[in-house]
Design a binder for these strands. Structure first.
Lengths: 222, 222
DNA sequence: TGTACATCAGTGAACGCGCGTTCACTGATGTAC
DNA sequence: TGTACATCAGTGAACGCGCGTTCACTGATGTAC
């Protein structure tokens, strides 16, 4: 006879004190993030699995979220916030514009490679909140609205490239278009690398700076 | 009283003639592809949904596939074959090496943008067949094995870049690494564009050739 | 030419499961009198 | 100080659903004699 010992994880959660019931919303999002980090795709992270992870019953979630979609949206917002924060921190760290552009790109890629499941999750679920309906025609208009949750992180990139251009450090004739190209490269790097872990990738450092510099029309840094 | 008319789609499928039962395998893969094209993620394409689409009962599938995973693998193989074929066709169409490199990239991207669901599907499901277990250390070793179903299409890219280099048309000091960078760019272009359809993307033509040329270290074509 | 039989392509019913969501509820904690 | 009551944080049981998979089967078609 063999036993399958399911780790019941008795996890003696004690209920929040009176008036602190709102804390559960945070615990729910945190639990969902833990599930994503554990390798589950955005679809494996079910409402019931979250409840199990947090240590509550499934119906308890409905006091804090209208439905499953609202949880997914909350997770996406949180992940995007994290990316934006890390990129902004790197970009604002000082140095000449080229250095700051490259630091921002590094921060973006580092986040993606450190948290491949989170990065993947935000591109697997719906990225646009349901209330954003109009179709923008310019970059500014797009970033101004709430069209794409990650718009801020991307705008940070555009701004640093424009700075390079203004400082005469980039011969980019169209910074907006080149920022898009860089973003495409960064996204491709993260998603291809973490999707194909058996591929003999060159080390990140050797690929990133040089290729971003090429796309940005920037003289290679020393 | 309101009726929900589910299009029962009586689809009078007649059984395959004697000895032609094997045809059903093809119909199953074709049906699954239709489901993917219709917008379903790789997980929405369930065994029962496929059976419904093809017009057979669910158990009939087991005569041709061991389980659901085997169908998914068959689909992935088919899609990769299609990409490889289109890239090889474009690369082999003639012209100077740079022209052929760019044509190959265009073919890759065109496929991805024409069939965003198919492209997404192959990167959502497991890409490595279960029998490939060793971990390669070089590009050649990787492409030699069956490690990644899409290896052939990528190798096509490496070869055309090496040709450019040999013909003195590229100042790439490391064609393998630059081919990786290009692939990353192409993948990023396809997957970001088709994931974010509300973003004001510049037209493909204006982005592709120029940026690939930059990454390849190739003098911009006229 | 007729008939028994094997083969083949595919079915229908059933299984146990996990899902999202609903409903009426419980039991601890603070508050008013 | 004691007690009735409202509020709050969360439950347990149940619903209908679609899933992958299994099992024993059916009914048409070709073949041997």
């Amino acid at each position: 006879v063999s036993y399958l010992v399911t780790t019941t994880e008795t996890r003696a959660r004690r209920r929040n004190p009176r008036g602190m019931g709102g804390h559960l919303a945070g615990e729910i999002v945190a639990g969902a993030l833990r599930l994503i980090d554990a390798g589950g795709s955005a679809e494996t992270v079910t409402l019931r699995a979250i409840a199990r992870e947090v240590g509550i019953s499934a119906p308890s979630i409905y006091a804090h979220f209208r439905d499953r979609d609202e949880i997914v949206l909350a997770i996406a917002r949180k992940i995007f916030d994290e990316i934006r924060h890390r990129v902004a921190e790197a970009t604002g760290a000082g140095g000449d514009p080229v250095k700051r552009l490259l630091a921002g790109c590094r921060a973006y890629v580092d986040f993606g490679l450190e948290h491949p499941e989170r990065y993947r999750a935000i591109f697997t679920c719906e990225l646009t909140p349901p209330d954003a309906r109009s179709t923008p025609t310019s970059l500014e208009e797009f970033a101004g609205g709430e069209g794409f949750l990650g718009a801020d992180a991307f705008l940070e990139l555009v701004r640093s490239l424009e700075e390079c251009s203004r400082a005469g450090l980039s011969d980019s004739s169209d910074p907006d278009a080149d920022a898009v190209a860089i973003w495409i490269y960064l996204h491709g790097l993260v998603s291809l690398r973490s999707g194909l872990d058996r591929f003999p990738w060159p080390p990140v450092e050797s690929m990133l700076d040089g290729n971003v510099a090429k796309l940005a029309g920037v003289r290679r840094p020393a």
